[in-house]
């Protein structure tokens, strides 16, 4: 059970792309090895690759994700100094060290591919991507203005695909809540939290799901952004 829930929380696309990247590197190393006349000891090749991988890189923010762009081949330089004066040996190892540095670009490219692919497979504006398994869902009250109500799973499931995304008026919500009443009589606009749901398998998305006081609004809070959805009917029952 533990393992299954862990897997369901990992970003499967990212994982697959990393594995793919390594397969390409291994394949390239194998081709180099076959072409060489003076062959190095096999166990030294991974070592050269890993040291070669070591580089100075620049962090770039792209589509809300930080990607690493390699700049300086530090690992290759280190190996160059290690093999200084042993020119023949360096000749056999050099290409693997550089392949290690090139691997940085392979991973960089795989990240560039992962981001749009992830967006296509898990559309970021679909509620059903964030709330996919409703079986064990329930709500908890996170503010005293919440009433004693419970989740209507039937209503939630029925409306998952039809809820409309709407704009977040963050400052307006904040100011309305603050101004309408004296300081200690305030109602929270989102006094409930939906728990026990999980995001779509393999998406690796983590979300806090707040529910609006009228039961018709869902505020999703992910590490990168917030999304707001409205439904026709309330997804809660009881209370009032």
């Amino acid at each position: 059970m533990e393992i299954i829930s862990n897997v369901s929380n990992t970003n499967v696309i990212e994982m697959v792309m990393i594995i793919l990247g390594w397969l390409i590197i291994v394949f390239l190393a194998y081709r180099m090895y076959r072409k060489q006349i003076v062959k190095p000891k096999v166990w030294t090749i991974p070592l050269m690759l890993i040291v070669g991988l070591f580089s100075l890189s620049m962090n770039l923010k792209m589509l809300e994700t930080i990607v690493k762009v390699p700049i300086l081949p530090l690992g290759v330089w280190i190996l160059y100094f290690v093999f200084k004066g042993k020119n023949e040996k360096w000749q056999t190892y050099r290409s693997y060290a550089w392949l290690g540095f090139v691997a940085n670009f392979i991973f960089f490219a795989s990240t560039l591919l992962t981001i749009p692919l992830h967006h296509v497979i898990y559309p970021k504006d679909k509620l059903s991507v964030y709330i996919s398994n409703v079986e064990n869902a329930s709500i908890i009250n996170i503010h005293p203005s919440a009433k004693d109500r419970s989740l209507s799973k039937v209503s939630l499931i029925k409306q998952l695909d039809t809820m409309r995304q709407e704009a977040i008026y963050s400052d307006q919500w904040y100011n309305e809540t603050l101004m309408n009443t004296e300081s200690n009589k305030r109602n929270e606009r989102f006094p409930y939290l939906l728990i026990g749901t999980s995001s779509k398998w393999g998406s690796g998305l983590h979300t806090l799901v707040y529910i609006e006081d009228d039961g018709k609004g869902i505020l999703l809070s992910t590490p990168k952004r917030e999304l707001y959805f409205r439904s026709q009917d309330s997804i809660m029952e009881g209370g009032e």
């Binding site: 996170i142 503010h143 977040i168 963050s170 400052d171 919500w173 929270e188 006094p191 505020l219 917030e226």
Partner: peptide
């Protein structure tokens, strides 16, 4: 351009 609203959490 990204708006965020943080609901108040108050549990007792």
């Amino acid at each position: 351009g990204i708006e965020r609203y943080y609901p108040r959490v108050q549990m007792e």
